[in-house]
Computed example of a mutant assay.
Amino acid sequence: MISPFTPAIGLGNCHLQTIFSRFHRPEPWIHTQCQWLDTPDGDRLALHTPVQLVDDTTRPLVLILHGLEGSVESPYAQGLMQALLAQDFQVAVMHFRGCGGIPNLLPRAYHSGDSGDPRWLATQLRDRFPSTPLMAVGYSLGGNVLLKWLGEDGEGSPLTAAVSISAPLDLHLSSRRMNRGFSRVYQKHLLDSLRESLNRKALDPVLAKQMPPLNSPRIFSNFRHFDDHFTAPLHGFTGVDDYYTRASSRPLLRNIAKPTLLIHAVDDPFVCPTAVPAESDVSPQVTLAISQRGGHVGFIGGALWKPHYWLESVIPQYLQDHR
């Protein structure tokens, strides 16, 4: 039974829910070690762990997938690692390609439907720790990737349980939502971060020649323009509409065959309310935890002067129930 979410006194607004942790938890506090794994296509993935992983049937490994331009240092990743370690889970954070301030080795980057990388990483983890149950938690972009991965694999998924938070389930609708009202502030912040990451990669003259040119200001005017000019062609899509259709997880929710908790707030400033699924849209293995309020990866209860991070109690409890 999932306890209902009640916003903190003083943090009822969706934007306050969304940005509060950035000010309340400005610095990372969980130290991790990084291991680089060489991918079959000649690139590399970073895997961050607070302690050395071991093969243990009694201590599940939880793989955390961060959001757009996030990393192991994101406050939500730090908080969840702390909560999971306290309940004797093992934990690892996968950086999507090029995240964490270190450019990847290929022209391609990552995108909202990039289920191939966590799927490949899961096979590596299963080979190294064959007796250890594998679970996953995805935030925002990482949540959409996780749901898409679960829907694609069905009964064949290597995961024993999963949790998705604030996933942009329908990318068509999310791109429109992000281009309206105050959500454009978030859009600009994320696009500025993407611009910095890509400019850093473009310092490599070989990679720069293989990447779409980044010198037009229109590219970074909104997500739709960016994805049409950069994301889609660089990742094998015929255009932005093809990318948004094929990368959205919502059509695959009925195919999920492993216990999955889907957490979402109706007032999420990143996601159109009409994208929020109903019971009829998901498989019997999916538990919906839909709140009217909570913002985007917020869900902060308690009070402004004594906040309680609801996700950090609900997620470990759900995973405990499926150990």
Rank of each mutant, 00 (worst) to 15 (best):
Q33Y: 03
L65Q: 11
P60N: 10
L37M: 14
T32Q: 10
H95N: 06
Q82S: 15
Q87H: 13
R59Q: 15
P118S: 03
G101K: 04
L85Y: 00
A122K: 06
P28S: 10
A109F: 10
D117V: 05
C99K: 03
M81V: 00
H48W: 11
R108Q: 15
P107S: 13
L45I: 14
D41V: 05
D117K: 02
L121Y: 04
R119G: 06
G101R: 06
I30C: 14
R108T: 15
D55Q: 00
G100E: 12
A92K: 00
H48T: 05
H48Q: 12
Q90S: 07
L45A: 05
S74P: 06
G98K: 01
Q82T: 14
L61Q: 06
C34P: 02
T49S: 09
G79D: 08
L84P: 00
Q82N: 15
Q33M: 05
D114F: 03
W36E: 15
Y110S: 03
L106P: 01
C34S: 14
I64M: 07
D38M: 10
I64A: 02
S115W: 15
V72G: 12
L37P: 02
H111P: 01
L80T: 12
A122E: 05
Y76C: 00
F89M: 05
P50R: 03
R44H: 00
L47P: 03
S112V: 05
V91N: 02
V62E: 06
Q87I: 08
F89E: 02
M81H: 02
H95D: 08
T58S: 15
L106I: 04
Q78F: 12
S112P: 01
H31Q: 15
R59V: 13
L121T: 05
A46S: 11
P40N: 06
V54L: 11
G79K: 03
P28I: 04
W29P: 06
T39Y: 04
R44Y: 00
M81P: 00
A46N: 07
E73R: 05
P107I: 11
H48G: 07
Y110R: 01
W29N: 11
Y110I: 04
Y110W: 12
G100T: 13
G116A: 14
L37F: 14
H66G: 04
P28E: 09
C99A: 12
Q82D: 15
S74V: 11
D117G: 07
Y76I: 05
G116Q: 12
A77L: 11
D88A: 15
L106A: 07
D38H: 09
G100V: 13
T57R: 13
G116Y: 07
G42C: 00
L84D: 00
G42D: 04
V62K: 00
L106N: 08
P60S: 10
P75N: 13
Q87W: 04
P118C: 06
R97D: 02
T32V: 14
Q35V: 07
D38W: 09
D43N: 03
L45E: 03
Y110H: 08
R97K: 09
G98S: 04
T57L: 14
Q33D: 12
Q90T: 10
